[in-house]
Design a protein around this nucleic acid. Structure first.
Lengths: 149, 149
DNA sequence: CAGAATCCGATTTGATACTG
DNA sequence: CAGTATCAAATCGGATTCTG
């Protein structure tokens, strides 16, 4: 493999698809299985450790920074800020800053953000709802593994 | 913060919920907003860098190790093995090993795995389908930021 | 309050080489 | 083919400190 993948900016999908499917410049959809497709970055932000939680939290409505921090138990200021910036840069989160004496900033989902939010909420809900059976399966499996797979 | 969070095993949800909602030992559902809830680990595996791709790939049917490796462009052997083990331990992936001369191993989704798979596929599809507009939004946003938000 | 900046340990990830 | 072992690099992520 070459080392110069650095130049593969956003035009990557086009190049990638052109190579694999012969499509022209007008790209219609991303391909997560393609190594250099920008969609991978978006997926990375959304599915980052805190991305899912932030999106689900914001589905509940506009929140302030410390509101989110309290709601998402265990997140640090650094990671919350970072995650919000990623999601904002992708156009999923809208940041509104009010120039008042004690700073006041509100975060909400854009229409686009609401759509991804709903997708990840589906996943989050499924996991929360099926946790008991997942834990049971985990126990069955490594009880089995312990005895020699 | 204490350092001994190590002891917080799987009983964490019960303790967590008991503390916040007064529930008894019989846990009915996980809570991703709770710091020590095991559901966070499951989410971590599923949304890990390659977890989503592996699940979506397996929705397409049974695959062998190297089939997956070829399909999921850019994944290393190490990470594919690791990811498959996580998903297997959570009961999402079924590993069948045939004791033949050139080793032959097949991976498929369990019923439970198919369900999570469909959830993540929803997300994956949305991202792939909306990539163009996401990229456009990204450009608008940092063009704006460049000029001074 | 809402962050930015810095320090630094813990994880993750990837090449590479080796094995049943 | 289907991995495991090992090492080095990159990144993640938290605690702390500082600012408007």
């Amino acid at each position: 493999m070459q080392k110069n993948i650095k130049d593969a900016g956003h035009g990557a999908i086009a190049a990638e698809q052109e190579a694999s499917q012969g499509l022209a410049a007008k790209m219609l959809r991303g391909d997560l299985f393609a190594e250099k497709c920008p969609s991978r970055d978006v997926l990375k932000h959304v599915t980052s450790r805190w991305g899912v939680l932030v999106l689900v939290a914001l589905l509940g409505g506009t929140h302030r920074f410390s509101q989110l921090r309290r709601k998402i138990n265990g997140i640090s200021e650094r990671m919350l800020a970072q995650t919000l910036q990623w999601l904002e840069a992708d156009g999923f989160v809208l940041r509104k800053s009010y120039p008042v004496v004690p700073p006041h900033v509100e975060y909400s989902l854009t229409p686009s953000g609401t759509e991804v939010g709903l997708q990840v909420q589906g996943l989050a809900d499924w996991i929360e709802g099926n946790l008991p059976s997942i834990l049971a399966a985990q126990r069955r499996i490594d009880a089995n593994a312990a005895r020699g797979a």
